[in-house]
Computed example of a mutant assay.
Amino acid sequence: MPKTPVPLTVPDLSAFARALSRQLDPPPGHQSLLNMLARASGFRNYQHLTAANTARARLDAPPEPPADHARVERALAQWDDAARLRQWPARRAVQELCLWALWARLPAATTLHEREVNGALNKAHLFDDAAILRRSLIGMGLLTRNPDGSDYRRAETAPPPEARALIARLSARAKPG
């Protein structure tokens, strides 16, 4: 008569090992018992079991969607060789990607005055209209300001894949040599 396997799921192997240790006479050390349990489930030792579960969790995480490189290319065409925005793009999708690249140039976790924000934006574009860029960054939620407009702060949020690809390419362009 074949035996039916009975699965055992233990939320915390360490607590399970402590409880099992109390039932053994003489009880082995905690680490020794963890290694025995890991070997009994097919692993070399407890460290191997931990590494395998950590890798499984990383692999089970949903993969990041790939960047739409055609959109990145359209946005990249708006920038010069020194990674400065040449003109304000006509298409909203391209504008948004360009705003992400400008957002990346603002210092993180720093309160800035309007003059400092304008200075950072003026270094990053050639068409002399920091106000439209600043207002657009605020409209997209990438920049926040006090109600009186005195202090600005970069909103810390993860850029979409296309924005990360654009930021990386512009960073490579901006580096000398």
Rank of each mutant, 00 (worst) to 15 (best):
G42H: 06
L133A: 10
A55P: 05
R164S: 08
R74T: 11
T50M: 12
F16D: 04
A70E: 11
S32H: 14
D129S: 11
P159A: 05
R44E: 13
P159F: 03
R84C: 05
H48G: 05
T111H: 10
A38Q: 03
A77N: 09
G29L: 05
A52N: 12
A104T: 01
G119F: 10
P159Y: 04
G149I: 01
P63R: 14
L102H: 03
N122R: 09
T157R: 10
A168C: 13
E116L: 15
T111A: 09
A108V: 05
R18S: 02
L102V: 08
A17R: 00
V72T: 00
I138G: 11
A83L: 04
A38C: 06
L24P: 07
A15S: 15
T110H: 07
G177M: 09
G42E: 06
Q95V: 06
N146K: 13
L112P: 02
P28Y: 02
D25N: 08
L97K: 04
G29F: 03
A93L: 12
L133M: 11
G42P: 05
A130D: 03
P161M: 13
M140V: 07
A131Q: 05
W100Q: 08
M1L: 08
D68C: 01
A163Q: 04
E156Q: 11
A77I: 14
P27H: 01
R145A: 12
T110M: 06
A82F: 06
A90F: 04
A75N: 03
R135C: 15
G149C: 01
